[in-house]
């Protein structure tokens, strides 16, 4: 744990000395980084750098071997996935994972932060607050017209937006998006960047992305990962001109 104890109160997310080892292979190796509230941070790096694993560790899908993840002063490494969600961390996966059998409305409703226990889900009623929240989010993610369509009928890009919407309705303080524009058309990319700009007005966002154009569009700061460690960190211009980054990732 090379980094000294931080004053993690100032940061929304403080990752310190995070290490995970799969059968001796350290996918993430003594990683530390800090997120300010309302920051958009993009993690880039070559394949196998451990970007997705970092998101997995924060949301609890993978358990850390050592290190700490403090979110709003709360230690996340000891919590279960659903408890991490309830503390305000939302995670979008790389491939769109929406409930295809349910309608867009129902997809959003399921994610509405109420009635999450077995009894709560039995007693849950679709009241005006729920309907308003769903309509609100649907507008943000450009899906107002298809609320009654089954999610299976949506295009790839729309599914990605729906999944982002499912996170938004949970009102998380931190949104983690894994390659949100992968497989999207140019028009959809533009719209997604626009969507992210709206979202970041009141969320902190952590994005893993390959598309440098898109990264440049949205990022406040960029963290470059390589072999489980931070290679470089700073503004997009800073990392783009960093010789180490050019060497391992961007190419000459």
């Amino acid at each position: 744990m090379s980094t000294a104890k931080s004053i993690s109160g100032d940061f929304l997310l403080a990752v310190e000395g995070l290490t995970v080892s799969f059968d001796g292979f350290k996918a993430v190796d003594d990683l530390s980084f800090y997120l300010d509230p309302r920051e958009i941070r993009v993690i880039i790096g070559p394949n196998g750098a451990g970007k997705t694993t970092v998101l997995d560790l924060i949301c609890g899908k993978t358990k850390a071997t050592t290190g700490s993840i403090k979110f709003a002063g709360k230690e996340l490494t000891k919590l279960k996935e659903h408890q991490i969600v309830h503390s305000g961390v939302g995670r979008k996966f790389q491939t769109p994972s929406v409930f295809e059998d349910l309608t867009v409305f129902e997809n959003l409703e399921v994610s509405y932060p109420q009635g999450h226990s077995v009894i709560g889900a039995l007693a849950f009623k679709r009241d005006t607050a729920v309907i308003e929240a769903v309509e609100d989010v649907a507008k943000t993610i450009f899906l107002t017209d298809v609320l009654n369509e089954p999610a299976a009928m949506l295009s790839h890009g729309q599914k990605q937006w729906l999944e982002i919407g499912m996170l938004l309705i949970q009102k998380p303080a931190l949104l983690m998006l894994d390659e949100p524009v992968a497989g999207m058309s140019v028009a959809e990319r533009k719209k997604t960047a626009e969507l992210l700009r709206v979202i970041t007005k009141d969320h902190t966002v952590l994005v893993v992305e390959h598309d440098m154009q898109f990264v440049g569009d949205i990022a406040d700061r960029v963290t470059v990962m390589h072999q489980g460690k931070v290679l470089s960190e700073g503004s997009i211009e800073h990392v783009k001109s960093d010789p180490k980054v050019i060497e391992v990732y961007l190419g000459h």
Binding site: H82, V85, F99, L122, E163
Partner: peptide, 20 residues
């Protein structure tokens, strides 16, 4: 909603878990 969660769980267990 309980019934919808059960169906959703069948198809996308991970998404249900990360919906809290």
């Amino acid at each position: 909603k309980l019934g919808r969660i059960l169906v959703a769980m069948n198809a996308q267990e991970m998404r249900v878990r990360f919906s809290g």
